[in-house]
């Protein structure tokens, strides 16, 4: 995917994330405390739209812009899926941000989110250093 397309898609995504407030620590807290259905409704709707889109793409056998067959492979299941997933969930509740929203929070002027970004960069580095020693 070329740079212009990637930046344009990123701008659209960041705009939607911010406007929908899914990047808000307060919304994430209300989700984990079951105080409002908002986040569940957004994620649920997104998944339903995603499932329908994928089923349509499979049926019509559309190719990508680069004329390749579409990649529906998904991700492998291993121990990291569960252990890493739980570790991420704790971080999500603390920071109110998953990886995409960290960048959007910075854009909105919540500059303290740079601390989250540096933490996340360090975390990805730490994982790559320890990779071979972790149960997979």
């Amino acid at each position: 995917m070329n740079k212009i397309t990637s930046i344009f898609l990123g701008i659209s995504f960041g705009f939607v994330l911010t406007k929908s407030e899914v990047i808000s620590w307060f919304r994430i807290q209300k989700m984990f405390r079951f105080e409002e259905p908002y986040m569940y409704l957004i994620i649920g709707t997104a998944v339903i739209v995603g499932i329908i889109s994928i089923q349509i793409l499979k049926k019509v056998k559309l190719k990508s812009l680069s004329k390749e067959n579409l990649d529906f492979s998904g991700k492998e299941l291993n121990k990291g899926t569960i252990i890493g997933g739980t570790i991420f969930g704790i971080g999500w509740a603390i920071t109110g941000a998953c990886p995409g929203p960290i960048f959007a929070q910075i854009g909105t002027g919540e500059y303290v989110a740079f601390a989250t970004l540096i933490g996340a960069m360090s975390g990805s580095l730490l994982y790559n250093i320890l990779r071979n020693k972790l149960p997979q």
């Binding site: 890493g84 941000a97 989250t116 933490g119 996340a120 975390g123 730490l126 994982y127 790559n128």
Partner: peptide, 14 residues
């Protein structure tokens, strides 16, 4: 936030 971010970065890669 740094420590939370560390968990986000490590956990999502794992």
């Amino acid at each position: 936030l740094f420590l939370g971010g560390l968990l986000v970065g490590f956990g999502t890669r794992y």
